[in-house]
């Protein structure tokens, strides 16, 4: 069993068996990060380029650490979005990078589909580290990994995703991933943050968070971009937080063993209260740990074998 494509552009293109392979491979790699010598020689001589058109600390660092723990050479390129419009095109940037023979290009971009575009031009593997509001497959894989590790499996798990679904690539990838694995997914948020036709992706839609909590095995809170207030998606942080923030009061309505996830970075006191974020139910930091293992697995499965 191996991955069928040279690129990881989204959960959409993955089959259930491929997701299972990634998760089980990640389980092996998780052990590496617990060693005193956190490095294996597997990808010695391979080059990974992290091409980030959006600011990111967690994801970029996670990919970088993953590459380095595999002995690959990781190069980070951060491109300020402001210079993109003046500078060279994405296609030209991609072709120039390709000319330096990398094995894998990890790209984050504010435009949906940007990774797909460069994947068409590149022979090297492309990993989508988040494109616009489209997908963030490695995040969904680490979320699935975290839940699977805690609950033993994903089939039958009830996942509740709360927040700005319209602008969330994390939500889209998780809806696709969890439903592929046999979980049921409900998305919840104000109608202003609920995109047209989201239920066609296989989830149910609701706006009443409190009513949904008791039936959720996993509660995934999404980061609220505070600048969305200017677009009139919510009137005030106070009101958003009252309706859709997860605090101790709301948590009492949830199952006692419900798991709480958040892709980070968290807005304390907005979508999640400090006592919940730091509480025993929260897996937020566990997600970060698992992120490295999942990304090591992706590198291994995409560029660990013979080049096609």
């Amino acid at each position: 069993m191996k991955l069928k494509k040279k690129d990881l552009l989204g959960i959409e293109g993955l089959e259930k068996e491929e997701i299972e392979l990634i998760l089980s491979t990640a389980a092996s790699f998780k052990e590496v990060s617990t060693r005193e010598i956190k490095k294996v020689p597997t990808l010695r001589g391979k080059t990974v380029i992290n091409l980030f058109y959006e600011p990111s600390t967690r994801t970029r660092t996670s990919f970088e650490i993953a590459a380095k723990r595999m002995s690959a050479d990781a190069i980070n390129i951060s491109v300020a979005s402001s210079s993109v419009k003046k500078g060279e095109t994405l296609r030209d940037t991609a072709l120039n990078l390709e000319a330096m023979n990398p094995d894998c290009v990890v790209i984050r971009h504010s435009s949906s589909g940007a990774p797909h575009m460069i994947a068409r031009h590149l022979k090297s593997s492309v990993i989508n580290a988040g494109d616009g509001a489209h997908e963030h497959p490695s995040q969904a894989l680490l979320d699935m990994f975290t839940v699977k590790e805690r609950l033993g499996g994903l089939s039958g798990v009830r996942l509740l995703i709360v927040g700005d679904i319209a602008h969330s690539r994390v939500a889209r990838s998780n809806i696709l991933g969890f439903t592929k694995m046999g979980a049921s997914v409900t998305v919840c948020g104000p109608p202003t943050m609920m995109p047209e036709g989201i239920s066609a992706m296989g989830c149910s839609v609701s706006h009443d968070m409190e009513a949904l909590l008791k039936d959720a095995d996993v509660i995934m809170m999404l980061r609220v971009q505070l600048e969305r207030q200017k677009e009139a998606l919510f009137p005030s942080v106070r009101e958003y937080s009252r309706l859709y923030g997860l605090d101790a009061g709301k948590l009492r309505k949830a199952r006692k063993d419900a798991l709480i996830l958040h892709p980070g970075p968290i807005n304390r006191g907005v979508e999640i209260s400090p006592e919940v974020a730091d509480g025993p139910w929260s897996l937020i930091l566990e997600q970060v740990t698992n992120g490295v293992a999942v990304r090591m697995a992706l590198f291994y499965l995409l560029i660990g074998g013979v080049k096609e």
Partner: peptide, 21 residues
């Protein structure tokens, strides 16, 4: 002890599945 990640023929074959460590 799984030797897979340390093998010298990884780049010559399809990606090998990892085993227990």
């Amino acid at each position: 002890v799984d030797a897979t990640l340390y093998r010298d023929d990884l780049g010559m074959k399809e990606t090998r599945p990892l085993k227990e460590m």
